[in-house]
Design a protein around this nucleic acid. Structure first.
Lengths: 208, 208
DNA sequence: TCAAAATATGAGGAGAACTCATGTTAACTC
DNA sequence: GAGTTAACATGAGTTCTCCTCATATTTTGA
């Protein structure tokens, strides 16, 4: 974001822009999304849009971040309310909540937490592991958070490579669930089931 | 594509446009890719571009299809040249070839076989399984081809849900490998290894 | 040889992205 | 509560991309 809204009116306007962005994503998709239409629907002049967002990407990134925070909040609440006894139950819970948000949260089907990558990998840094460490990717943030939740709640020992395993699991699950929702508006139930199986199988190496 | 090139000159031009598209994708990414620049580099007038491609998406889709065919050819050759004894070897081979193409084929890092989805899921068809059946997605084509290759070569019985399992495996592997190449220009070796593990674990249910 | 089909071409219309100069409102200090 | 500063508002206009279309040329095949 170009500037963070400090006063209440502009905060509301930014929220409205994000809301309308999400709804438009559902209606027309990412490619056909226009800043002008977002501004028009949110009832703000186009100039105001560019006060806060540098461009279309910036808008979508902000939405992804909002989605990310909403998801983590929901997960935390549910885990706290009904702590799962087994880590496999935690996997189900986490996936079910994701599916629920896919169904109910506008725009989530198109962007969830993911970037829409404009350029391949950004500037190619020499430091191999650097990019993952810096958590430039929202999926990495999700993975880290889920890992600490599972470690905390279930008292699993944080083994070697567990961090990476969670990133892999999140990335894979995200892809399969995206597929499930491309195949079926409500999410193909069989594919959702397969997604759970995929994650359980894979993580059992690291959590057993 | 709007029209298929029938004469040699135009066939060469279309190839050149695809080549330049691929190189540009590596240089500037999908969002910054312009039809004008592709045409300029391929040394064809912009009008000629639109003789063959309806729009930018169409261009990228054609490139993805070319990638798909190249990949399937390579896989078939390698499987024929050195038939793997075990299906897990076949998984390694298939992933290694994919990684090799990511490293060496221009543009493959950005688009491989995948669409860049403009709108969410296209027209929402009521027939649940319809979209997968029609193989609108290139990853589904890859999955089907891989499945028949494995079934043929290794004499595995085509069990229930195997088709779906391959689609899931391809989608998940694609996502993890994309991550591997975002994290590291040559593909993070650890993530590539994890990708293989993920696929082997998951498919063992269906191939054992 | 000649008609039909395929291909070539680039100026220009349509419209999206984004800027900027100028005016207004809120917040904070003394 | 006057004054200063920082945040915010605005939309016509510039730039750039997408894509079309009328017209001209080349290739094909009977």
């Amino acid at each position: 974001m170009r500037r963070r809204p400090a006063q209440r009116r502009s905060q509301e306007r930014v929220e409205r822009m994000l809301d309308e962005c999400a709804r438009l994503l559902d209606e027309v998709g990412y490619a056909a999304l226009t800043t002008k239409e977002v501004a028009r629907r949110a009832e703000v002049p186009i100039g105001t849009f560019y006060q806060f967002f540098t461009d279309k990407q910036s808008l979508v990134r902000a939405l992804a971040l909002r989605n990310l925070e909403a998801y983590l909040d929901r997960i935390s609440s549910r885990l706290a309310a009904a702590p799962p006894s087994d880590w496999t139950d935690a996997v189900d819970l986490v996936i079910d909540e994701f599916v629920l948000m896919k169904r109910t949260t506008p725009g989530f089907g198109v962007v969830d937490f993911g970037e829409v990558y404009a350029a391949p990998g950004g500037p190619a840094l020499p430091g191999t592991q650097r990019m993952l460490d810096e958590a430039l990717e929202n999926n990495v943030i999700v993975a880290d958070r889920l890992r600490s939740l599972v470690v905390e709640l279930l008292g699993v020992a944080p083994g070697e490579g567990m961090s990476r395993a969670f990133v892999v699991a999140v990335e894979a699950a995200d892809a399969v669930l995206k597929l499930a929702f491309r195949a079926h508006p409500e999410g193909d139930p069989d594919l959702i089931a397969e997604c759970k199986r995929l994650v359980r199988r894979y993580l059992s190496d690291h959590l057993a």
